[in-house]
Amino acid sequence: PLPWTGDTPPFGFSTTVSATPWLPQPDDWKFYTAEANQADRTSMLQLYRSALRLRRTNPGLRSEDFHWLDSPPGSLLFERGNGLLCAVNLTDQPIPLPEAASPLITSAPLGRDGLLPRDTTVLLHRD
């Protein structure tokens, strides 16, 4: 169940407050409800909304063209459509970003050092 509203379980997932959700919902999920994340520009909700807007406006994200690219150990790099790159850093250290590419959306802020921070994903467009 997704946490929608409120600050106690079942967080708007059920219209009956006394109903027991089929999956447990920890009390700290109150920080992750859609309602609580509505105004937070850095929330996962806003990241997904931005990604969906980008998908609607960028035909390359709907393309079936896909291929893997070489990347540093502990990372993934692939290309979709016409020059859209996705880089995923699964390591605990920053890694170099692909050259001559501009970020379209990131899961966390990028540093000015040209490196992709740890545990971060970025969608880029080749310049």
Score class of each variant (00 low, 15 high):
79 E>P: 12
63 S>I: 08
62 R>S: 03
106 T>D: 07
30 K>Y: 14
50 S>K: 04
21 P>R: 06
109 P>M: 04
15 T>Q: 11
112 R>F: 09
64 E>G: 03
111 G>M: 05
74 G>D: 00
121 T>Y: 09
58 N>Q: 14
67 H>G: 03
125 H>E: 14
3 P>V: 09
121 T>R: 04
4 W>V: 13
51 A>I: 12
70 D>V: 04
72 P>I: 01
83 G>K: 01
92 D>T: 14
112 R>V: 11
79 E>M: 11
77 L>P: 06
126 R>N: 03
112 R>D: 11
95 I>L: 09
98 P>F: 15
24 P>C: 05
97 L>R: 05
17 V>D: 13
113 D>H: 07
101 A>V: 03
98 P>I: 11
119 D>F: 12
99 E>G: 11
58 N>T: 15
101 A>K: 03
112 R>Q: 13
48 Y>M: 12
88 V>D: 05
49 R>E: 12
103 P>W: 05
77 L>I: 13
54 L>W: 02
46 Q>T: 12
114 G>S: 01
35 E>H: 05
62 R>N: 09
24 P>N: 08
34 A>H: 10
69 L>V: 01
31 F>T: 14
122 V>Q: 07
85 L>V: 12
31 F>E: 13
20 T>Q: 14
71 S>T: 13
12 G>A: 03
54 L>I: 07
124 L>F: 02
116 L>M: 02
57 T>I: 08
60 G>T: 06
83 G>W: 00
125 H>D: 09
88 V>E: 06
86 C>N: 06
125 H>N: 10
34 A>T: 15
97 L>F: 03
3 P>E: 08
